[in-house]
């Protein structure tokens, strides 16, 4: 199953469907979930929450606790309405790190003593990844960059995040069109036999790489205007001005929703610890 999906993905790298699909999924993930509860939370609180979820599970070996953490982050991931593709990558990531060991040992009739640690490890990896998915793809990009800046991340990084979200649709479209040029005018090897398939794959990888030659030049043309416009619009002036940072960050407000979110999380985790000690 896994292999099949992989194969299909690779075969259609150049396929309009998959590039288009990819673009759609990335856009959906980036812009499609700005009206969720998670997206409206205070980024500073979410970042603290993330730190907890990403660090603490590594130090704890209690199944109930880990399970509770996992369920919590799974719930927030659902609430953040993360795109399917991101979840797929998540699944692939967990699988490649520990999941496959888990399944293999199940297959060879591993007993509880071998499965248990693996289950724990898988839970830890999964919790950590899901927490990062919730925060980084569930949060509105601008709020995320403001939150990072509040914690003292360099201004350049928060600019990069916002700019990346702005430029991505344009870049994707341009890249797609260049690939389409190759598709319309190129002549890929036939993919009937196994050797043909390998050659076809190699051809596709080559085309993707060659596409960066026109893409580099076209993007260079664009970035000149962008940087001039940034200058006019005071980007460099703001980067060294403390007042600007203050004004920008003054839009951050922790409200009732944030408190609620925090309280529920704490309650849940506390409950889990209690249950685990009672059992």
């Amino acid at each position: 199953m896994e292999g099949k999906t992989k194969k299909r993905l690779s075969e259609s790298i150049l396929d309009k469907f998959s590039i288009d699909f990819l673009r759609n999924q990335v856009l959906k993930n980036a812009y499609g979930n700005d009206d969720t509860v998670i997206a409206r939370l205070d980024p500073r609180i979410l970042l603290v929450w993330y730190l907890f979820m990403a660090i603490v599970p590594w130090f704890v070996d209690d199944l109930w606790f880990l399970l509770a953490c996992f369920i919590l982050v799974a719930a927030t991931t659902v609430m953040a309405r993360v795109a399917g593709l991101v979840l797929f990558i998540f699944a692939l990531g967990v699988f490649s790190q520990t999941g496959y060991l888990f399944i293999v040992s199940l297959f060879f009739g591993g007993n509880a003593s071998t499965i248990f640690p693996l289950l724990m490890l898988t839970l830890k990896v999964a919790t950590c990844s899901l927490a990062s998915i919730t925060v980084f793809s569930g949060l509105d990009p601008d709020r995320l960059s403001n939150g990072l800046q509040w914690y003292g991340c360099p201004e350049r990084l928060s600019f990069s995040i916002s700019y990346a979200y702005r430029i991505l649709p344009m870049l994707m479209e341009e890249f797609q069109n260049i690939l389409l040029s190759y598709r319309l005018r190129g002549n890929p090897p036939s993919r009937e036999t196994l050797r043909g398939k390998i050659r076809y794959l190699a051809y596709q990888v080559k085309v993707v790489m060659l596409s960066f030659y026109p893409l580099m030049l076209n993007t260079a043309k664009r970035s000149r205007t962008t940087v001039e416009a940034l200058e006019i619009r005071g980007y460099r002036y703001a980067a060294v001005n403390k007042a600007v940072k203050k004004i920008r960050l003054s839009s951050l407000r922790a409200g009732a929703n944030d408190m609620m979110f925090l309280a529920v999380s704490v309650f849940w985790i506390c409950g889990a610890v209690l249950v685990s000690t009672l059992i």
Binding site: R166, R222, A229
Partner: peptide
């Protein structure tokens, strides 16, 4: 600018 779309740098 003539290529005005490149002068827009924020997402919203």
């Amino acid at each position: 600018y003539q290529d005005f779309e490149n002068q827009i740098v924020r997402p919203t």
